[in-house]
Amino acid sequence: MSDHQSPQEALEAIRRTREDVRRRMSHSPWWYDLGFGGAVAVMVGGQGAPMPFGPISTAVGLAVIAVIVRKWTDRTGVWINGYQPKRARWVAFGLAAVMVGLMVGAVACGRLGGPAWGPAVIGAVAGVLAVIASRIWTRVYLAETRDLP
């Protein structure tokens, strides 16, 4: 690239560079979905377990997420906070709101006399929803980067 590149050439260089980022951000291996969904399932479902398993499940879930995020960033070399992109952040906020609701449900089910299998089912539902939301977030983010100025 030279100092004297035309505006069209400069815009094309920007487009090519962004395409590289989008390709890296599209990296979605099976272990990421499994790890993320599993971690969320443990964190949500664990809230319905007797003390001290609630805090322990939260710690285990966060540790698993930290490991998979580290492994993913090591492979792709890029990272973005889920709450940062203007459009995609709403998927993250929505997922967080649903997860809080499911956690309350798991607590109510596990500690206030609900069925014993309740928290496990709620945790499994949370895990599946987390993976779906993760995929939706990626799609919205990729579309958002395509429309960046």
Binding site: A13, T17, V78
Partner: peptide, 14 residues
């Protein structure tokens, strides 16, 4: 620098 900014406008990068 144009490409660096283009890349970083989409994500944090190593």
């Amino acid at each position: 620098r144009l490409q660096i900014c283009a890349l970083l406008s989409a994500a944090e990068a190593e």
